[in-house]
Design a protein around this nucleic acid. Structure first.
Lengths: 186, 186
DNA sequence: ACCCTGCCTTGACAAAAGTCAAAATATCAA
DNA sequence: TTGATATTTTGACTTTTGTCAAGGCAGGGT
């Protein structure tokens, strides 16, 4: 069952806690371009991507800048907004037809109050996301445009296929022209 | 009392949990250049900086690259290593004489087992650090060398005084020459 | 098929930042 | 204070990436 795939590779959770959590999940069949979160609104859900993919982006100075891609098996939300309960600066949209599960902020907090195991699971997920972000940041400091592209190809090849050149370029912090040149010289 | 400053602005913690946590803390009077964590070793402590400051850095391709500065009132550890229990790639050192408190990984886990409030506090701290990292990452995507410097001056002016040009430059992802030129034109 | 339209690629040039080397300045110990 | 050493600044030049403009290519609707 896909819903429980959520818990794979994560610390042990009691059946009770697991069932409570699953009980709160809502399934979403999302078409390509479905907006999980919208800039200007408070992020009210934590999403789990069972199938498909998504990208998070900011609009600033009329530029659309992708800050992350999320794939199957990952959680995603507009973290800043979700945590601070203030309007989001970012928008999150699916890159393709996707199967999502979401839990609301309130219900997640309710889970934490009731089940310490779930708070622990969430904490461990947060830790993983933190170190992933740290790695991404460090890697971007050491690499040239070409190396950044090669690393993305290696680590998230699926992104290369599904995202547009514009999305990939802004994610890798270069222009589409530079990306185009990089690709032509591989 | 400084130790309890740790808990300010953080969710309510029961006296019992607070005392247990404080009981595990070790005080460290660190001179300038004291190594909190060393590359190649597993990070065993979470540090709280009561007074002073620190920087985390990587050595790669013979370059010393600063990835973060930490100030009074902040927690710091080589997060990747601390979480995964594998050797650290980063080294953390004080930038000046500092007063630190540290708790070992084992004792922190013990606290989490015993007191849900402490796991919650840790979770909330993690959340704050996550969004801070996210912001730092996003901001670096939008800004030029000069803007990055101006933003650092505004947000962490203390760093400008205490860290060397080399540290600041690598943190801001530019060479010391570029930084020097940026500074001369303000 | 045809023309849109949007997206991607290519080219010429410009701007930003990096590299290397030398000079200036600061730091520190004797 | 002086000299030795390390750090910072400055200058000339190179490399990388960005900008602007033109052209190519693919898919959708008529």
């Amino acid at each position: 069952m896909i819903k429980t795939g959520l818990f794979e590779n994560i610390a042990e959770v009691s059946d009770e806690a697991r069932n409570a959590f699953i009980g709160y999940l809502e399934e979403i069949q999302a078409e390509k371009g479905y907006k999980l979160e919208k800039a200007g609104e408070v992020s009210n859900y934590l999403f789990y991507i069972a199938q498909g993919s998504a990208r998070s982006f900011y609009i600033r100075d009329n530029r659309d800048i992708t800050v992350s891609f999320s794939l199957e098996g990952e959680f995603v939300t507009a973290m800043h907004s979700f945590i601070t309960r203030s309007p989001s600066y970012e928008t999150i949209e699916t890159l393709e037809k996707s199967l999502l599960y979401r839990i609301s902020y309130e219900n997640l907090q309710r889970c934490f109050q009731e089940f310490q195991d779930l708070e622990r699971v969430y904490r461990i997920i947060l830790e993983k996301y933190y170190i992933a972000l740290e790695e991404q940041m460090i890697f971007s400091k050491f690499k040239s445009a070409k190396e950044r592209y090669l690393e993305l190809m290696e680590k998230k090849p699926k992104i290369i296929q599904r995202a547009s050149v514009g999305h990939i370029a802004s994610f890798l912090d270069m222009t589409i022209e530079t990306l185009s040149r990089v690709r032509s010289k591989i």
